[in-house]
């Protein structure tokens, strides 16, 4: 028997039944199939990425990833339940087994990958941290921000990045860190801070909540790399593969020109490029290797769409966020989006 200290005994009592529940289920896929839905951890409301509308329906780029996994597992993209999580709750919720996937604009860093007992299954948005200031402040560059008050969220990489940036440039600053994004926006809007910093996609999404969105400007500096992606628990490679390949399927579909509008036509077409045939399950047994049915990717494309469709629908130029594809274009179009092939 393991030697137990009083401390670990108490901790065991504190962890309680959450730990027991996850210990009994053999694999995440079996557990998900048994309960009949995917439990997906999302943000508490970040327009374009994960946001609930008036009727409680969740939409966004991050939400689409969860829907893709549900489509791959159940053949039904609607079989998802959402857990809105704050930045600091998210990893605990995932490691305790409360959620199956964390798809909440989460930055992939080495610490998180190696120390939290989690695995990042890929990148669905390449972002970078930016800063927003009121135009009235007359600041043109982040290097002029010495002595500024800065509002941000707790429990994110933004706290570390902004600290690093100011230390590197030998500037002083005060950090005011809130638990939820809404309070950050409200405090910045009230004038508590000179600067609001978060990922640039987040700045674009939150800008609409300010009383005068047009009187603020995002500074040109991008002070960090923020590859955002879905996260799963470490130690279940099958589930990890399902999430990773659901994302890869969406990116590959865009590259192969398969979208929700033409995937049905392709299915009944007799002459198909081999790569397309493999993607939509007409050739090979790629789905079965994942523990799913062979039309897994067909279901994703049919019900959720390819990456480009998802992007344009939620964050693209025709949405309030107006984010150009930029680095999130396919590698073949000058971006860095590059998924491993299905073969």
């Amino acid at each position: 028997m393991k030697k137990l200290s009083f401390l670990s005994a108490l901790c065991g009592a504190a962890m309680g039944f959450g730990a027991v529940a996850s210990a009994n289920a053999a694999t995440t896929l079996e557990a998900v199939k048994a309960k009949g839905f995917v439990q997906c951890g999302v943000s508490q409301g970040l327009p374009g990425f994960s946001n609930a509308d008036d009727s409680g329906k969740w939409t966004g780029l991050d939400v689409d990833l969860c829907r893709a996994v549900a489509a791959a597992v159940f053949g039904d993209a609607e079989k998802v339940k959402y857990s809105p999580l704050s930045a600091k709750q998210r990893f605990t919720a995932l490691s305790s087994g409360e959620i199956d996937i964390l798809s909440r604009n989460t930055t992939w860093t080495m610490t998180r990958d190696t120390q939290l007992g989690l695995n990042f299954a890929g990148v669905n948005y390449y972002d970078g941290q930016g800063m927003m200031v009121p135009i009235a402040l007359g600041v043109k560059s982040a290097t002029e921000l010495d002595g500024a008050n800065i509002c941000t969220n707790t429990g994110t990489t933004t706290e570390l990045n902004i600290t690093d940036y100011f230390r590197t440039n030998g500037m002083s600053f005060n950090l005011v860190a809130f638990e939820k994004a809404d309070e950050v926006v409200a405090a910045y809007d009230a004038g508590r801070c000179d600067v609001y910093t978060t990922d640039r996609s987040g700045l674009a999404a939150q800008r609409g909540k300010l009383t005068q969105p047009d009187s603020h400007v995002v500074l040109p500096e991008i002070i960090s790399k923020e590859p955002l992606g879905p996260v799963v628990r470490q130690g279940d490679d099958q589930w990890f593969n399902i999430v990773r390949w659901s994302l890869n399927a969406m990116i590959n579909a865009e590259e192969l020109g398969i979208s929700s509008s033409n995937v049905n036509m392709k299915k009944f077409q007799s002459k198909l490029a081999p790569s397309v045939a493999r993607l939509i399950g007409k050739e090979g047994k790629f789905g079965e290797e994942l523990g799913l049915s062979n039309d897994w990717a067909y279901n994703i494309i049919m019900q959720v769409g390819n990456y480009a469709e998802s992007y344009e629908k939620h964050v693209g130029l025709n949405t309030p966020l107006k984010l150009a594809r930029g680095v999130n274009s396919l590698w073949s179009n000058g971006g860095i989006l590059y998924a491993a092939p299905i073969r």
Binding site: M1, K2, S8, A9, G12, M15
Partner: peptide, 14 residues
């Protein structure tokens, strides 16, 4: 409970 916690943590590589 303690044993369960430890083995769950070990499963996650923690």
């Amino acid at each position: 409970l303690a044993d369960n916690t430890l083995s769950n943590l070990a499963n996650q590589g923690k």
